[in-house]
Amino acid sequence: MSEKSRGFLRDNALSLTFGAVFLATLVGQALSGVADFNAQQIADGLEPVSLGEYVTSSSFGVDVMENWQSEYLQFFLYIFATVWLVQRGSSESKKPGEEGPESDKEQKVGRHADEDSPAWARIGGWRTAVYGRSLGLLMGALFLLTWAASSIAGWAAYNGDQLGNREDPVSYLGYLGAADFWNRSFQNWQSEMLAVGSMAVFAVYLRQRGSPESKPVGAPHAVTGQTG
């Protein structure tokens, strides 16, 4: 990269700010989560739990993971869908007619790589094929891992509730077919799909001055794929 470094904090301001807000909101989830959990415990005639017990419980684990999985699903689908599908006029989209993985020349791979291209973009073969899909593959892998984690923590939390209600625990496979698991999954997926679709189409007609997520304020509505 040719831009000059301006120090660790300014170079990474976006990632570090979101990382810090992530930690603060995770603490907020733990504090409000234990209060909500204890309100239910008391209503059920059970002992309240401490904050430490709550954050080491599968109830907390599944609540965190069910949201993580839907975010990674969203990015995974968006990264792959935008290769093949366009939204005319959107800053989030490629231009109509450019659908598909594009040529090696356009993508600067193999012999079309620049001097400062990543090594795996130049080398060819399976490494270039994998590297050329690495962002989507990582998001897809993180979706599968977080979804699996939400199912495992959800299973334990569900069985905790079952025992509290003097009902039989279910097997892991039984939980994968339970309404609780699918309700948690679908209620997160639906909101992600709506948000992504909204962003793609709202960005056609609306602007945010200075944001790379938006077209330049004066860009015509019909222009696709221009950011500024």
Partner: peptide, 30 residues
């Protein structure tokens, strides 16, 4: 770019640790 790479790995490690932690809580049946 070295300090950017550190943030890349920090994110990846935090995510993997979070996933492993949630799986461990579930498997422990807590």
């Amino acid at each position: 770019m070295r300090n950017v790479r550190a943030v890349f790995w920090l994110y990846l490690v935090v995510i993997i640790v979070g996933i492993a932690y949630a799986i461990a809580l579930g498997l422990a049946g807590r």
